[in-house]
Each structure stands twice: as C-alpha cells, then as structure tokens.
C-alpha cells in the first residue's frame, strides 16, 4: 500500500507548550489509520496538522514536514482552502449548517464554483449514498438538517465532506456523541469509505480502534510511542506503555 501522507520530524508548539515531539509516521493510502492515546497526548493536534486546521490557533508553531502525495503541506504557496478540500474533516459533534439537508451537501460545491443544478443534484445524491444516508433522507432533502437525529447528522456531515471529492478524510472522535446503532453505521461506513479514500480517525474507544482501523498509532505526551498494524498493536504491542494504555492500566 502506497504512503498517502508522510510526516517527518514534525514538531508543534502552542506557545511554550511542546505538543508534538518529532513525529515521523507514514499514513497508508486506502486504509483506516486510528490514532489513540489519553487526553492531551497530541493525537487530535496531529490530526489537525494534516490539513492545517491548527493554523488558526494563536501562537502555534509547526516545524518539520508533512507530505501529502509527496507535496509539502506547510509550503507557503499552498492554498489552504484547496488543501482542506483534498483533506476533509469530520468532527466529534455533528455540526450541520442551519439549512436544508440538500444545501448542506451542496454548500462546498457552490463555494468551489459548481453551480449547475444537474451536476449539483448528481453529486449530492452520490455523496449522500456514499455516506449511507440517502435512503433515509431522499424524500426530505429540503427539510432542515437539524431535524435529523444525531447519527444521521453525523452521516450528513460525512456526505458534506465527500461532496467536494477529498482524497483523505480526517475524523476526530466521530462517534463519541452517538448511540451504539449510529456508531455501528458510521463504523460500517468507514470500511466502505476506505476503498476510495484514506481515513484517519482519532478515537477514545479502544474497541473501535481495534474494530475499524488497519493501522493504529499510540500517542503519549506528544510522542508517537508505537505505530503498526492494528492486529499487532492489540495483540502484541512492543512498548510497555502501549500495553498499559490499551489494557486500561492508565489513561
């Protein structure tokens, strides 16, 4: 499997706080990569470096390299909007816009200048299908997105991400606010999505990481302690700190 993203000697500071310490990690294309670790370990920070969501944080300083398809993400010339189109993101709490289901998905397209009705219709349907929510909303596309359940809203947000045809989807605890059935639907969806996209997910749910990710990275105090195949990490971790964390001895 080819490397989609390569982070090399990545350091990130929030003011004086050294939040990521020399992270080097290759993220495989068309795989789900799970990032785990206790709160404050740097996993969400790392996720956000991949599409420069940290840029907006005051006092942030990034050193090192993040390559997406071999191109440096932190080059000055990089158009951050284009980058975020290519590397989409889904957050912990579903955050649909206060507009219709249809408009939520079409929003990104319009921003990027796609306005032709027939094209937009087609992409909206394809995205909603891709996010496994089409059958539930196809008869009420004009209804407010906020009328959907939490799980449906989260899948709508995934559809909104898919609409702009990203390569990579970042997910920051996408199911932590959802009930078990909605969680299962999102997890099922992830195994479908990885056929066409590269998925990186932060999760606090150890079983979820074991279920859905192909590769797992364990972060602790800003360091990448261990990274490898999920089956290896959860059966025979090499570092005692990984073992202690995944077996619930701390964190």
């Amino acid at each position: 499997m080819a490397n989609k993203i390569i982070a090399k000697d990545l350091n990130l500071y929030y003011g004086a706080h050294h939040a990521l310490k020399n992270i080097s990690m290759d993220i495989k294309e068309n795989c789900v990569t799970g990032l785990i670790g206790p709160s404050g370990c740097g996993k969400s920070t790392f996720l956000k470096t991949l599409n420069r969501m940290n840029d907006t944080v005051p006092g942030v300083k990034v050193e090192g390299t993040v390559l997406l398809d071999g191109e440096e993400v932190y080059q000055k010339a990089v158009d951050v909007t284009q980058l975020r189109k290519k590397v989409g993101m889904v957050f912990q709490n579903p955050n649909p816009f206060p507009m219709s289901i249809y408009d939520n998905v079409a929003y990104g397209l319009r921003i990027h200048g796609i306005k032709k009705r027939i094209v937009v219709d087609e992409i909206v349907e394809k995205s909603l299908r891709g996010a496994a929510i089409w059958d539930e909303v196809k008869d009420r596309l004009k209804k407010p997105a906020l009328s959907l359940s939490g799980g449906q809203q989260q899948r709508l947000c995934i559809a909104r991400t898919l609409a702009v045809q990203p390569d990579v989807i970042l997910m920051d605890e996408p199911t932590s606010a959802l009930d078990p059935i909605s969680t299962m639907k999102i997890e099922e969806l992830m195994s479908e999505l990885k056929k066409d996209y590269t998925v990186v997910i932060v999760t606090h749910n150890m079983q979820q990481a074991a279920r859905i990710s192909d590769y797992t990275a364990f972060f602790l105090l800003g360091e990448l302690v261990e990274y490898g195949e999920t089956s290896q990490i959860f059966s025979m971790p090499q570092d005692k700190r990984t073992e202690d964390y995944i077996t619930g001895r701390f964190g």
């Binding site: 150890m206 074991a210 959860f234 059966s235 971790p237 073992e243 995944i246 077996t247």
Partner: peptide, 9 residues
C-alpha cells in the same frame, strides 16, 4: 472485559 494484548493472550 473485552481483553486485548497481554490480557487476551
């Protein structure tokens, strides 16, 4: 307990 790693082994 849904054991993993050393516990599962």
């Amino acid at each position: 307990q849904q054991p993993v790693a050393g516990d599962l082994r």
